[in-house]
């Protein structure tokens, strides 16, 4: 399990990646994160919804109400073109980060 401190800067990237595959809602996104990371990363509810709020404020995603299920309106999210551009930026940033950090990572043969 990865600590949330390490991954903090990339929560937005993870969510945007999942929205690239089509609009989705809170639980589906958090379930997909869990599955794709093979349960090594579980995003907390508060982290997820803080991210939605931040992404929406920046215009990277849009929210809308979906059809009623079980008598409840579900909030769906979709990525905007601005969000796609931001995602690309973040991918490049990650490549660079990975490259830099890797230079300081030593292989330990225990």
């Amino acid at each position: 399990m990865i600590s949330s401190d390490v991954i903090r800067g990339y929560n937005d990237t993870i969510i945007l990646y999942l929205l690239l595959g089509g609009e989705s809602y809170g639980y589906e996104i958090s379930k997909n994160i869990k599955e794709l990371s093979e349960e090594k990363y579980i995003m907390k509810e508060t982290t997820l919804y803080s991210a939605f709020d931040r992404l929406e404020k920046n215009g990277y995603i849009e929210s809308f109400y979906g059809d009623e299920t079980f008598g409840k309106r579900r909030t769906y999210y979709r990525i905007t073109p601005k969000g796609q551009a931001y995602y690309k930026e973040k991918c490049e940033e990650w490549e660079l980060t990975k490259d830099v950090i890797n230079r300081f990572i030593k292989e330990w043969n225990v």
């Binding site: 809170g26 639980y27 958090s30 379930k31 509810e45 508060t46 997820l48 919804y49 409840k72 579900r74 909030t75």
Partner: peptide
Amino acid sequence: NILSNMEEK
């Protein structure tokens, strides 16, 4: 939203 998320989970 958080409640329905938690419920589904």
